[in-house]
Nucleic acid binder design. Structure first.
Lengths: 332, 332
DNA sequence: GTGAAAGCGCTAACAA
DNA sequence: TTGTTAGCGCTTTCAC
């Protein structure tokens, strides 16, 4: 590998001078500037980012931890993040948390060890105390998807429960009383909040919560499919179904179809996330749009500010937006 | 930040000794081992990976460049890659190539500058000469999705044309003569190969290639939708449609439905990629399964070997597997 | 068994 | 305007 020393020799100057022209720092005579660039060109020199980071005490990177790599959800997020981070002149390092709390923790640790200037953790599994501790270990760590009352300025959150409640209220307002629900993983705050929103809406409308209208699932397409079959078997009388994410709604759609139930004529279906395919399904899927682009942007901006030592304000919670499409019918 | 020096002082030993116990290198008295670990614990010391990499002349990372972050396709790939790389004790750095040749090139450059031990480039846009040059610049760079005759051992490829041809041959064998096609981006080798496979099958069966059965598209759901509408407008007489990826098939499915054409009764539909949702669509989508898991695994293993200075053999091209589902009907 | 010292490739005072 | 020098945090000879 060509080093700066090689360049300096080729150009007949010192390393310091090479560094100066490459970083545009300090005054350099035009002729030597040219000579250095010429040498760089001839040798095909490229700076060693690791060495640079060590000397600069800043790696010029921002780390991102997501729950997993599958699915369209994080894809959208990563795309936006990559763009923003690049625009800020930094580089992005992504890691996944293997859908476990330990994995998430380990991933963040790694990013810290890599000396990322800022870190964004999209958590689904870590508990509050562990998160608080992480936050205390890195001055520019932002957490997405978990509200930490002790550190509001470090969180970017989405009003899960409210959105879920709006969905179910919408269904009720359109004449549905028997509303089933397929949950997201119930051991996660997200899964819990969405179910809580469902219950909240029922309560607000004095509709009894029934166990046989609930199927616990895992956010996957196959999971949604099986959960829906289970529901139909337990009690096929529901006229509406709230799947706590779009993937499960896709699975449920097929299960309903196979059971001879037409959507939306027999059963109205609601998803959550607004995946790219939602709009194109047959029938197009009603769902909740999550402003993940805005959320990740906000998190990155805030993290960047923190890494500059700036003082930051808490971020307002984000809210979802109902996308009502063909899969829901008015029964009134 | 706590450094090794801090630890050494706390333990009453030298940096060298700390390094020895942490890396299990050289003999150390048990009592001092314990002392060092105690100090590490007390101080919460974590080694600086950057410094380590610089001193070791190896970053212990393997870099991965993909075309973009959206879509389920690369998600599946990343998931598998992350697992494998982690299992090998290394860390993964992912970057995206922004769906442009320059982006791909820049992404690889960056990984080289970061001193990745090995690099995997899933290319869709770079041309052969540029790829050859990259390969010469990094001894452990593997290219996925482009065949370089000069460097077969650095490539992992998939028989695109053959698979596409099989699809169309299957349709023909099942009584279809009027087969339309929605292409993937035609400025990419993948797009070209799949279309070539389509033409090849027609030729083999003495069926004329007709311009009005072709719509050029962009691999997106929306693109598939619009392309299908265009096809129907140009010449609605096709009895089968080959969408060059599943996303476009999803879009086409809706367009067909809106045009009053039933799938598969009026039009048989084939996709490509075998996305997770393919099996659950209504009707379930016939498609081609790509062994991306195996492909990425192979690429990683090969890259790892290269980075160890081992000599490697060329890799056999991978082939797809037809997944025939409800969306295709026999018209004979 | 342990420490001192040099070096990985770069940056940044401080002199000259 | 430029070179010398001392680090950044770690590893690794080479003595002791």
């Amino acid at each position: 590998m060509i080093t700066m020393l090689d360049v300096s020799r080729q150009a007949g100057v010192s390393k310091a001078t090479v560094s100066r022209v490459l970083n545009n720092t300090g005054q350099v005579k035009e002729s030597t500037r040219v000579a250095v660039f010429k040498a760089v060109e001839e040798l095909g020199y490229r700076p060693n980012l690791l060495a640079q980071a060590l000397a600069n005490q800043t790696s010029n990177t921002i780390g991102l931890v997501i729950s997993n790599f599958d699915g369209p959800y994080f894809g959208r997020l990563l795309r936006q993040a990559a763009q923003l981070i690049e625009a800020s002149g930094k580089h992005m390092i992504v890691t996944d948390g293997h859908d476990t709390p330990e994995g998430e923790l380990e991933a963040v640790r790694l990013l810290i060890d890599r000396r990322c200037d800022a870190i964004i953790l999209y958590t689904r599994f870590m508990e509050e105390p562990a998160l608080m501790q992480l936050i205390s270990q890195h001055p520019a760590l932002m957490v997405i998807n978990r509200d930490l009352p002790q550190a509001r300025e470090r969180c970017v959150v989405f009003e899960q429960q409210q959105a879920a409640s709006e969905v179910v209220n919408y269904l009720i307002a359109h004449g549905h009383q028997d509303i089933a629900c397929i949950t997201a993983p119930i051991n996660t705050p997200t899964g819990q909040s969405r179910l809580a929103g469902y219950r909240e809406a029922l309560e607000q409308n004095n509709i009894a919560y029934r166990d046989d209208f609930i199927a616990f699932s895992d956010s996957s397409i196959a999971g949604g499919y099986h959960a829906c079959r289970e529901l139909i078997e337990k009690n096929p009388s529901f006229t509406a179904l709230f799947a706590c994410n779009d993937d499960m709604a896709i699975g449920a759609l097929r299960a309903l179809h196979q059971a001879g139930k037409r959507v939306p004529d027999d059963v109205s279906l609601f998803g959550f996330d607004d995946e790219p395919s939602a709009e194109y399904l047959q029938p197009s899927l009603s769902t909740v749009y999550l402003p993940i682009d805005k959320m990740i942007s906000t998190a990155i901006e805030q993290a960047l500010r923190l890494s500059n030592g700036e003082i930051v304000e808490p971020v307002e919670p984000f809210v979802g937006e109902l996308k009502v499409r063909e899969s829901v019918i008015n029964r009134k």
